[in-house]
Design a protein around this nucleic acid. Structure first.
Lengths: 178, 178
DNA sequence: AACTAATGAGCCGTAACAAG
DNA sequence: CTTGTTACGGCTCATTAGTT
């Protein structure tokens, strides 16, 4: 709750104040008075010296709105539209052109930022999927190993069965021969 | 930042400004009476673009070099160093502070760009690896299928061998019994 | 001690300009 | 026009210092 509440409409009042009490705006230039205690309660309007020279450096919200509207429909600016806008807004055509230039630059930067965040999310999702695939590969390798092992075991068992069968056959025949 | 304040004063303060920063004072600021909005150094359409002596809007290469040197050693700026730099460069301390602020902003943007390109390369490599893993998964699935098939075939063959063995055994015994 | 206003410094957004 | 640079206004935060 400070001077930041004083916005566009208050500027004129501040201007009036600064005109009525010009000494308030230049306290540092005359610091020799009242050195005893009154250090506090210096003019609080120090931040916005909306003097005659500095008036309206920033465009008003209404002007910006209209400019944004026009920018939304078309980023480029032909001189015809520029002049029309300038007269509508009460601005210098040069100011309108500069505003559009800066706006385009800002838009470009914002675009880049968007690209960055998009790329970031895409990257993260791809990383997640890569991890998933890695675990899948590990699982599949394990399965492959297991299956091979089982295959070998099966072969061994089959071999054992065959061997036992052959042995029993041989035994039986030798016994029967005896 | 009292000088910042004085920058916003009315015409009677302009004398002070010009005394403090004669090289920076733009002459069109002094007669700032009829200008409604555009207060700032504005004179591009005036005939006296050629008074280079009073202009000096851009810092000289030498000044920028020294500033860059100092920025390289330390991005932050304590008031002591700021004042020293300002006196060394013949600049307003406010200008030095502003320059460092802008330089930090530029550095930040550059950093972001670097981050972007780094992220991009990382993203691309991860995408490549993901594709590799996908083909690997496909290959492993194929191998798994093949091995399972071979396993089944092997079992069938083993079964056939066993059956033939058993059959021959039965035949032999029956023959020997006969 | 708690409260509160003033102040200083930093960051952000942006106007204006300059150079290319 | 685009890109880069200088400067300013507004905001936040931490610190300081007068008031209660």
């Amino acid at each position: 709750m400070r001077t930041n509440l004083m916005n566009h409409q208050v500027e004129d009042q501040m201007l009036l104040i600064s005109q009525l009490y010009p000494s308030l705006c230049t306290p540092q230039l005359v610091p020799g008075e009242g050195e005893t205690k009154p250090r506090r309660r210096r003019k609080k309007n120090k931040g916005e010296i909306t003097d005659v020279g500095t008036r309206k450096r920033k465009l008003s919200a209404k002007q910006v709105d209209l400019l944004e509207l026009n920018f939304g429909s078309e980023h480029k600016l032909v001189s015809e539209r520029k002049d029309r806008l300038a007269s509508e807004l009460g601005l210098d055509p040069r100011q309108v052109a500069v505003w559009f230039q800066n706006r385009r630059a800002r838009w470009k930067n914002k675009k880049l930022e968007e690209e960055y965040s998009k790329l970031k999310t895409a990257h993260e999702s791809v990383v997640v999927e890569k991890c998933r695939l890695e675990t899948e590969v590990h699982l599949l390798l394990y399965l492959l190993l297991l299956l091979t092992f089982l295959n070998i075991c099966g072969k061994i068992c089959s071999l054992r069965v065959c061997v036992s069968l052959i042995l029993s056959f041989v035994l039986k025949t030798s016994l029967s021969l005896n």
